[in-house]
């Protein structure tokens, strides 16, 4: 049942990605509208999948990498749909949908694990911790995508190559604003996620902070983003430098998310979550 919902979500999200890619090439409005609604359909299936799994497991379905990736894809689409309603920026979907679809493909390639959930994980704190962290991460991922688009567009304008890419990407000011707002909203989510995580650790493991690699790297990425926000707000960074910094920050975040879990172990690693 769960895998059925998952497959539906995957199919619709892949279809939407195809549509968004056709849209960026052909630039026809109806293609965008179709892709958008296909993505919304995929998102609804995805939501159903997550809700069903939550009901089955009794906790947020993020205890293995497969589920975590799929939850991250869901968060990104969720954030994209919200941003889309505000900025009405058609080209953004052509970057977000492939990103989400990429995560979903990796997720789908991984095997289902049917291990029982430790009672420790059946806590509302965990759901809040993971939910806020993932929404924050998704916003920061959008900031990253906007930063990449910014650098591409800036290169086109500086090099005076005003061809197909130039005409398809939005203005520099718009991209910079998306980057800025995604970080301004993403950072508090990340902060709340870390605080609730620490409260949960105290409740579950008896200590707020244990120098677990994931904790350390989360703090490092938090500091990176704090630095970027400071530069933007106090020093007045914008444009190119802010975009590069957003990309650097996001690489650190990705390492925290995937690299630490796979390479460094610790109680945050997925392998430790499955064990009894």
């Amino acid at each position: 049942m769960a895998s059925l919902w998952f497959n539906f979500a995957l199919c619709f999200e892949l279809l939407a990605t195809g549509g968004f890619i056709v849209f960026i090439v052909r630039q026809e409005k109806w293609v965008f509208r179709c892709s958008y609604w296909i993505l919304v359909t995929g998102f609804l299936f995805h939501t159903a999948f997550l809700a069903y799994r939550y009901y089955l497991l009794g906790t947020a379905p993020i205890l293995d990498l497969k589920s975590a990736l799929s939850f991250f894809a869901w968060s990104i689409i969720c954030v994209y749909l919200i941003i889309q309603s505000r900025f009405k920026l058609m080209v953004l979907g052509s970057f977000v949908a492939p990103f989400a679809a990429f995560l979903m493909i990796i997720s789908s390639a991984m095997p289902w694990t049917e291990e029982p959930v430790k009672p420790l994980f059946k806590s509302l704190w965990l759901t809040v911790h993971v939910g806020t962290v993932f929404i924050g991460d998704a916003l920061l991922a959008i900031a990253f995508l906007a930063a990449i688009m910014y650098l591409i567009q800036e290169y086109q304008i500086k090099q005076k190559r005003l061809g197909a890419i130039y005409s398809r990407l939005p203005s520099l000011a718009t991209l910079d604003r998306i980057n800025y707002y995604s970080i301004v909203y993403g950072f508090p989510f990340l902060t709340v996620g870390m605080i609730t995580g620490s409260v949960y650790a105290q409740y579950a493991l008896g200590s707020y902070w244990q120098w677990d690699p994931k904790e350390v790297w989360s703090l490092i990425s938090w500091l990176f983003y704090a630095a970027l926000l400071h530069q933007r707000i106090a020093v007045g960074w914008q444009g190119r430098r802010a975009a590069i910094m957003a990309i650097v920050c996001f690489s650190v975040l990705v390492f925290t998310f995937v690299g630490v879990s796979l390479l460094m172990g610790g109680y945050h690693s997925f392998s430790s979550m499955g064990a009894r």
């Binding site: 005003l162 520099l172 000011a173 718009t174």
Partner: peptide, 19 residues
């Protein structure tokens, strides 16, 4: 797209400043 110098300048300005 624009085919006069002045319109080309306006279009570029819009790609930089949006409005």
């Amino acid at each position: 797209a624009a085919v006069s110098i002045s319109y080309a300048a306006v279009e570029l300005a819009k790609k930089i400043f949006h409005v």
